[in-house]
């Protein structure tokens, strides 16, 4: 049984189509990265999953239960970190957690939870004085209350510094090890690739790719970028490199010393020999595998041509 099953979900606001025929499944126990640029429909999807908004068409099932008919039951077994939410200014971290514990009928210790998210020192301070990162930590602690079967984290890294983001990923790993399913939305690939078993990329309300991290990497054609440091560069040489059949593109990056960045699929030596044939001295070169960020870019930017949606 999948933890979350979204089946031909459509949501429109008047003429605007926020989600169109979206279908995907999140397996029990996995860490699923829900990736997409801002405005792609990630929050809309999560809002339907939590019954904050009602679908125009389609069906969402969470933990085997209909998301609309059994929302309370679902939310009692789910921990949620909502996006872009203000905490209650006049309540302390302890009171926030006591409210969550009380609401879920759990018996967690507020101090232990705050210790986990690194907010132990601020336990009796009012949340009104918190920084954005502190509020985010508090919300994460609230999501952890009651050892939920499913964690839904909507842009959890918002407001966190790199260290905070790393700690947050650590908690995701711990929760996953405990057996929880984690549904993790983000608009930054880097945040999800480190922790997610699978990633779904959403664009304009449609899922354009669902795969494992390595699968996604392969899907953009093993794209390697070759970085060549040369003594000088001219247009003639640049054109020659660009016209090679295996080269996807070449750009000059920096002039001192001149560096060429070449997207290449096949033989790298051809590129190097082409340059040398034109009397250009290759001083150094290196190759890098296409980063997942590049993969993400290729799926979500209009300029990409090679990528086919599904």
């Amino acid at each position: 049984m999948p933890a979350i099953s979204v089946d031909t979900l459509t949501k429109s606001y008047g003429q605007t189509l926020a989600l169109s025929d979206l279908s995907f499944e999140v397996e029990e126990g996995e860490v699923f990265g829900f990736l997409g640029p801002n405005g792609a429909g990630k929050s809309t999807t999560i809002n339907v999953i939590l019954d904050f908004i009602r679908p125009t068409a389609g069906q969402v099932t969470v933990l085997g239960l209909d998301a609309q008919a059994h929302s309370r039951e679902i939310r009692s077994r789910t921990g949620v970190l909502p996006e872009g939410v203000e905490t209650y200014d006049r309540l302390t971290a302890r009171q926030h957690l006591e409210f969550a514990i009380d609401s879920k009928g759990a018996d967690d210790d507020p101090e232990a939870l705050l210790e986990r998210v690194g907010l132990r020192d601020a336990i009796d301070k009012k949340a009104g004085g918190y920084s954005k990162g502190m509020s985010q930590r508090l919300m994460l602690a609230m999501a952890l209350v009651g050892e939920p079967e499913l964690l839904i984290l909507d842009e959890p890294s918002t407001g966190l510094d790199p260290n905070g983001a790393r700690e947050m990923r650590e908690i995701v790993r711990e929760e996953s090890a405990r057996g929880a399913t984690v549904f993790f939305s983000s608009h930054i690939m880097e945040q999800v690739e480190a922790v997610c078993d699978r990633v779904g990329i959403l664009r304009d309300g449609e899922m354009v790719a669902v795969d494992t991290v390595s699968g996604l990497r392969d899907s953009v054609g093993g794209g390697t970028s070759l970085r060549v440091t040369v003594d000088r560069i001219n247009d003639d040489a640049l054109q020659a490199v660009r016209s090679l059949p295996d080269v996807g593109g070449a750009t000059v990056e920096g002039q001192n010393p001149p560096t060429l960045v070449v997207q290449v699929d096949g033989s790298k030596t051809t590129v190097l020999s082409t340059l040398e044939d034109r009397g250009i001295d290759v001083q150094d070169f290196s190759t890098t595998e296409a980063s997942l960020e590049d993969v993400f870019q290729s799926y979500t930017t209009d300029t990409s041509t090679e990528v086919e949606a599904r």
Partner: peptide, 14 residues
């Protein structure tokens, strides 16, 4: 307006 209703409704309250 502040979105904090999502805190209330993320918890098992109707």
């Amino acid at each position: 307006e502040t979105g904090s209703i999502k805190i209330l409704l993320s918890l098992p309250h109707s």
